[in-house]
């Protein structure tokens, strides 16, 4: 009897606590969204908390007019698409040989790359390196620095290792090369893995901030993260720019534009998230297998 009552109390506590945690993840999003689509007067008087008040899209209109958000969005998209493609290609090239049991020296080469997870030179030598390569102000610097994530390579390697050997051996009876084996047999069998790793790289590229800040000085090449960050830092400047035109000023607040900018940046992630969530869970679990 007592155990039964215990169980019920415990279950109730769990439900309440977990619901609170979930709501805490939702409220900030709704708050931002509501601010971005509420009327200026409602925002200033603090009426907006979770739900929009006096629906208005002025914030978005002004945002697109006064800030380089559209260009930054295009830059981020370009950086991410090319970046993810390069990431995947080179990660496969790294992971596949390390997953072959007959690859001589794989133990040493695995250590060679894993060691860099333990110790790194930090941001300063990277900066000097890129400067001496003349890659400052070019996206090449960002693509190169983030080309391979050793963590993702280890996930891929352990996945390739678990593909039954018979499959590749059967395919290789008539002597096909390693490259063909990789492209014709291994990769088609790893679609779920590739989706997962693509997701990880996509998030990393889209959210890339430090390297852009360090290497890209040309405002025309700024990405979403840098532009939105500047908007948050200098929100007063933003409202000044909007207030130049007294007609807009009436319907505008700095907070509104800022929230709109943040939301525009969030859109791709929010769109992709429902489809990619299960790959995310899979990927995290794959990563927990010690490689």
């Amino acid at each position: 009897m007592k155990a039964n009552r215990d169980e019920k109390i415990f279950s109730a506590i769990c439900h309440v606590f977990v619901t609170m945690a979930a709501i805490s993840c939702l409220i900030p999003l709704m708050n931002l969204f509501s601010i971005s689509i509420s009327g200026a007067e409602a925002v200033v008087s603090g009426k907006v908390s979770i739900f929009p008040v006096q629906l208005s899209f002025e914030s978005y209109k002004t945002l697109f007019k006064i800030s380089p958000v559209i260009r930054a969005f295009r830059n981020s998209l370009f950086l991410t698409v090319v970046g993810v493609f390069l990431n995947i290609a080179f990660s496969v090239l790294a992971a596949y040989p390390l997953s072959r049991p007959y690859f001589k020296g794989r133990a040493f080469l695995s250590k060679f790359i894993v060691f860099t997870m333990l110790i790194s030179g930090g941001i300063l030598p990277n900066f000097i390196l890129m400067k001496s390569l003349g890659l400052i102000n070019s996206y090449g610097s960002i693509w190169l620095i983030t080309l391979i994530s050793t963590y993702n390579v280890l996930i891929m390697k352990s996945f390739f290792q678990n593909i039954p050997n018979e499959l590749s051996e059967a395919a290789c009876v008539d002597g096909c090369g390693e490259f063909r084996l990789l492209i014709k047999i291994i990769l088609p069998l790893s679609k779920a893995l590739l989706a997962t790793i693509t997701l990880f790289y996509m998030v990393a590229n889209w959210n890339e901030f430090l390297n852009t800040l360090m290497f890209i000085g040309d405002p025309k090449k700024y990405t979403m993260t840098v532009v939105v960050q500047e908007m948050i830092r200098n929100s007063s400047m933003l409202s000044d720019a909007a207030f130049m035109d007294p007609e807009t000023a009436k319907n505008m607040t700095g907070e509104g534009i800022q929230a709109a900018g943040i939301f525009v940046m969030m859109v791709p992630m929010l769109c992709a998230y429902p489809f990619l969530q299960r790959y995310f869970v899979k990927g995290v679990m794959l990563g927990s297998i010690k490689g």
Binding site: I23, L32, V228, Q229, I232
Partner: peptide, 27 residues
């Protein structure tokens, strides 16, 4: 679904949320 969501958001966004919740501005 909700608990995993913040992992996908950039710190820029999270910082914006922090300011919007704990800041002293109007919103």
């Amino acid at each position: 679904t909700l608990i995993y969501l913040p992992y996908f958001l950039s710190w820029v966004i999270v910082a914006g949320m922090v300011v919007s919740i704990f800041g002293q501005g109007n919103g």
